[in-house]
Nucleic acid binder design. Structure first.
Length: 468
DNA sequence: CTATGGCACGGATT
DNA sequence: AATCCGTGCCATAG
């Protein structure tokens, strides 16, 4: 068989290779399950409770983030700081910091449960520890539309906290994605969305008042009456109404933005929990980025030294069985190390390459293929594939996106397309859009523009805005 | 006649 | 080897 004691980093056996590969494609949550399972099955494996930074091996005193690794070596370095950090991980629908309902009865309940975790994960960093239970309580009280059915006042009395404190927590939740979630009413949700949107683009001046004062009339589409009540021209009211209809979502949990009726749960996969977190160090805009790779267990995983010792002392009959465990444990630990190492290198390179995308948005995404990265890092393509698969990263702006987005060949073109359409004075046909894109250096076929439009949920030119 | 969406094919990517 | 993606052709709607 193979020997036990070697500090080498490269895989030396086929078993090692196979296991590393399978571990590589796992989510942080799945990895945790895997580790727990192995820990339970194999007595030779041990979890040392003391918390050491897996990257630099220094002791972590109570902190979940390594104080040494997170400190920048050089403030102006373009290279990102990457380190591995143990963190709370929610596994499936149970366990973790959020008390979860047992088996979800139906798909809908499961959706709600996932949403609450998704939101919780986003706001957790901004939450004071003593407010955590409050947030958890609010989030579990959401109805299937993502709204809070119980009045805040009642909840405050039940939880024995001031309404003001609860409001602060609610506010945090509302600003998380999907924006408006956790609001006490449809109006409130819409207003929050409006507020957020205002920072990014122009909003019809009347929109706010329409929501505040004329929700009932708005939903019945009685624009004339609405205009009379508000004392404003019908034309403006209609414009505001259309804006609301197109850009706001009264039911935050139904995340199908844009289209209203058929609640399409946004085609591809939706991730709720990041496996890596990218944030900017300090607030220094040109400073290095910090990448935190989530290690789903606290403490250090290692082969139990007592077990090694026990082998020496046991008789020949049991030795083989014990040795088997020992080998498996050593292998397992090594695979985990290998996994960390690979992901670390991957992220280091990816973040350096896609820095602009991470900081400034989708337009700046550079089309990178997994294959090209594999060549740079001198690993097999499939290694990158697995490392990228099933993972989500949280960007500095709080958005959680699949890691595979970093390798999306068309994301940047789609972003530019959105931008062009958003800025257009008059609806342009797909053919015209081809021209506009070409001006900016993106050469795509007419048919492809149509596809991108559909992906972004943008209506065809005829239906976009006939007037204006 | 023009603008779009459906189907399907070929090449790249995984 | 399987899958995804961009594109061309053609039917259809306006």
């Amino acid at each position: 068989m193979f020997q036990l004691h070697y500090p080498a980093l490269k895989p030396l056996t086929t078993a090692h290779l196979a296991q590393t590969m399978s571990l590589l494609s796992l989510t942080a949550g799945e990895l945790r399950q895997q580790i727990e399972q192995e820990l339970a099955a194999n007595p030779a494996l041990e979890l040392l409770e003391e918390r050491r930074c897996p990257t630099c091996r220094r002791l972590l005193q109570g902190k979940s983030v390594c104080p040494v690794c997170s400190r920048p070596k050089d403030e102006n370095s373009a290279e990102p700081v990457v380190f591995i950090s143990p963190r709370d991980v929610f596994v499936g629908s149970g366990g973790g910091g959020l008390e979860a309902s047992d088996e979800p009865e139906d798909a809908y309940a499961a959706g709600v449960e996932e949403l609450s975790q998704y939101v919780f994960r986003q706001i957790a960093p901004d939450l004071k520890p003593e407010d955590r239970p409050l947030a958890a309580h609010l989030l579990t009280s959401l109805d299937e539309d993502g709204l809070l059915a119980t009045p805040l006042l009642e909840l405050a009395r039940y939880l024995h906290v001031s309404v003001g404190r609860l409001q602060a927590v609610q506010r945090l939740i509302q600003l998380a994605d999907p924006v408006g979630v956790g609001s006490s009413s449809v109006e409130e949700a819409l207003l929050v969305q409006l507020e957020v949107l205002k920072e990014k683009c122009a909003v019809p001046p009347l929109a706010e008042r329409v929501i505040e004062e004329g929700m009932a009339l708005l939903s019945r589409r009685q624009y004339d009456e609405l205009a009379r009540v508000l004392g404003a021209p019908v034309q403006q009211v209609k414009a505001a109404a259309r804006f609301i209809g197109e850009n706001l979502n009264p039911y935050p949990a139904r995340s199908a933005w844009g289209e209203t009726r058929p609640s399409r749960p946004r085609a591809s996969e939706v991730y709720y929990q990041p496996d890596m977190i990218i944030s900017r160090l300090n607030d220094y805009p040109d400073g290095p980025l910090m990448v935190e790779i989530i290690l789903p267990i606290f403490g250090t995983l290692r082969v139990n030294p007592l077990y090694k010792q026990a082998i020496q002392e046991s008789d020949a009959e049991h030795k083989d069985a014990l040795r088997g465990d020992l080998e498996r444990a050593a292998l397992f630990v090594k695979c985990i190390q290998q996994r960390n190492h690979t992901i670390l290198r991957l992220m280091q390179r990816v973040v350096a390459l896609q820095r602009d995308f991470i900081l400034h948005g989708e337009q700046y995404l550079r089309p990178i293929t997994r294959a090209s990265l594999a060549r740079e890092l001198e690993v097999h393509e499939s290694t990158i594939s697995r490392a990228v698969a099933n993972k989500a990263v949280q960007l500095p702006n709080g958005k959680i996106i699949p890691l595979s987005s970093f390798f999306d060949r068309s994301l940047n073109v789609r972003a530019v397309l959105r931008e062009i359409i958003h800025a257009e004075a008059r609806p342009m046909s797909d053919a015209e859009l081809v021209g506009k894109l070409a001006e900016r250096g993106y050469h795509v076929a007419r048919r492809t523009v149509a596809k991108y439009r559909a992906m972004e949920g943008i209506l065809p030119s005829g239906l976009r805005q006939p007037d204006f």
